[in-house]
Design a protein around this nucleic acid. Structure first.
Lengths: 350, 350
DNA sequence: TTTAGCACTCTATATATAGGAGTGCTACCC
DNA sequence: GGGTAGCACTCCTATATATAGAGTGCTAAA
């Protein structure tokens, strides 16, 4: 753990704040003027030299000012940053915008949108795949003689439907019976478990199976087979905001970044990691371990439904972002999203 | 209508093809070499001068070659371009990728994705809002004592669901009855019409209404109230591809473009206009009437389900795009999407 | 009608130059 | 010993200037 003198901390903090707001390397004169200390530039230079030796700041070239290094940002975020709570009117605005959406699926999408609009960077949300969700209810609905609409409701409030071709016509009472059967058998299990048990059932000799059971299984099968491929999902919005960020403004940097967004796998891993942590996570530069994000920082917070961690949301912006402002926004959004999801969450005890 | 000599046409065609493939202004020497004519650069210069007078090409500055103007592209596309059918293996690939997706909603999304990947530009799809779709079936499903899941199926194969809080508990048979009532009453009407009639019904004194009818109306109401705001939707994918396009590579051009994508309204109008046209539409530069698209061309084709025009899809790329290659891709994709939607379209006659 | 020749224009590239910002070092002061 | 002033030095940036190359338009000749 790096230990700094009070003066060193003060100057480092000021330097980083200046660099965040101005985007230019900070020289000794500027720093001396802005830090509230009565020191000459020369003295400040000595301190800066020490900070450079510690690896907290560096000079892009011999005669420029200093800019924070990744470790500098890290120290700043860990030790120097005091995050003020977001002002109530902003909280209220976020709250309202999240309340406006009633569909849980669209709600997370609008949270991502919201983050990108408020922060002017890219908003991102991780929706974990169905496998972690619990099976809640399934219904079969006849659309036409040989097509059945299956509706799957999971305990995180999501509803999925798929049209499934059937081999024969089912009567409406058969479908209800099949659904009841299925709901009784699998209610409360996780989807992954349902899938496993389902595959097991299919192995058994179908002769001994009840007629309704066979019908239910055969219809559910294609639904759950589909699910297998279904993985976590990353929802990205406001990527275009990053076009305006001066630090990322070289087309090729943006290109790599956008390519990475397209692939999404890295983002997914990153967000998944951050879901394990309780509270805000901050990845500075390539701390995330992914090259494409070298010039970026990612601020995330998990959100939950009824105390169960469901996913992660966050903001992707330049390393040189105003952590002070971004952190509370992410924090509050995660809390409010958790709240909104819980309120409109389907009642748990039927 | 502009009339050109055979030589003029030949040279213009070659010039545009060269410019599309190289991206550099084309000089008289280069043109003379590539056009298959035995003419000296000096002669070619004379012809080029004529073409410039006609407004088909222009020189970026005194001593550069010529580049096509918007009118030049227009003439090229209208009169000179011979579109070859797409090679069968590409057709097959597109076909396969569209066949892989069974959910109609995801199908159009994957068509957009497909377009952007194949062309390396941005793919775009217009999904017209529900109001044009016809009401097909509604179902109510009890999730918990005070929450009902309403499922709305429209005749273009889309399924929507919404969780609706209710004032009291409904029995499962009540719900079935309500759905039947509703389906009988409104089946086959357009959603807009259903909405209108619904609002009318609500006006009537509720005393005289049947109990089931009241229940059905009250549940459907919130569903259809929601629909009102629901407008057409534009689905954009592969915007990031445009980062690599040299013509658009100035950050500020991209910025305007991405901003426009965010607003989407212009795109929506554009696609909506092109839906009225049968077959391929091509908007070159600001022919679309939207400033943001000045440096772009948009190639679109409508797609249909069972003979009814449903939406439009297309590609947004630089004006300097290979129309020869893009047009057949858009054309085929629209056809195949139409096919895929029709096949998996719910049977019309129940 | 076509072509060769030529002067001219404009761009892009390389090079030189000056100015400025900021540093590190040294010597000096309290 | 910590703080400060002074100064030479470095490196970046911006501005001019020269040069080469590409391509044109025009004229005159085949």
């Amino acid at each position: 753990m790096i230990k700094l003198s009070a003066r060193g901390e003060k100057l480092l903090k000021t330097l980083i704040e200046l660099y965040i707001s101005e985007g230019q390397p900070v020289g000794s004169r500027t720093l001396a003027r802005h830090a509230n200390v009565q020191l000459s530039p020369a003295t400040v230079r000595n301190v800066m030299s020490d900070l450079e030796d510690l690896g907290l700041i560096k000079a892009p070239h011999t005669s420029a000012g200093r800019v924070p290094t990744q470790q500098g940002y890290r120290f700043f975020v860990d030790s120097l940053l005091k995050v003020r709570p977001l002002n109530p009117s902003s909280v209220e605005e976020i709250h309202e915008r999240l309340s406006a959406e009633s569909d849980p699926q669209l709600l997370v999408a609008s949270a991502s949108e919201l983050l990108s609009q408020v922060t002017h960077f890219a908003g991102v949300v991780l929706l974990p795949g169905q496998h972690s969700a619990k099976f809640r209810q399934i219904e079969f609905l006849s659309l036409s003689p040989e097509r059945v609409l299956t509706i799957l409701v999971t305990d995180d409030g999501r509803v999925q439907n798929r049209v499934i071709p059937t081999d024969r016509e089912y009567s409406s009472s058969e479908l209800v019976e099949a659904a009841n059967f299925f709901n009784d058998l699998y209610g409360g299990s996780s989807l992954a478990e349902v899938r496993k048990r389902l595959l097991n059932e299919m192995q058994k000799d179908s002769e001994e199976m009840h007629r309704i059971m066979k019908a239910a299984l055969s219809m559910a099968r294609s639904l759950f087979e589909k699910e297998e491929a279904d993985t976590d999902e990353v929802l990205l919005s406001g990527e275009a905001n990053l076009l305006t960020v001066p630090d990322l403004c070289q087309i090729d940097t943006l290109q790599t970044l956008f390519d990475a967004f397209k692939a999404k796998q890295d983002l997914l891993d990153l967000l998944d990691r951050s879901m394990r942590v309780n509270g805000i996570s901050i990845f500075i530069g390539d701390e995330s371990g992914y090259e494409a994000l070298t010039a970026c920082s990612v601020v995330t917070a998990p959100y939950e439904v009824d105390g169960r961690l469901i996913g992660t949301l966050g903001v992707i912006g330049p390393t040189r972002m105003s952590y002070e402002d971004i952190i509370p926004v992410v924090d509050i959004t995660a809390r409010l999203l958790s709240g909104a999801l819980s309120i409109q969450h389907l009642d748990r005890a039927d």
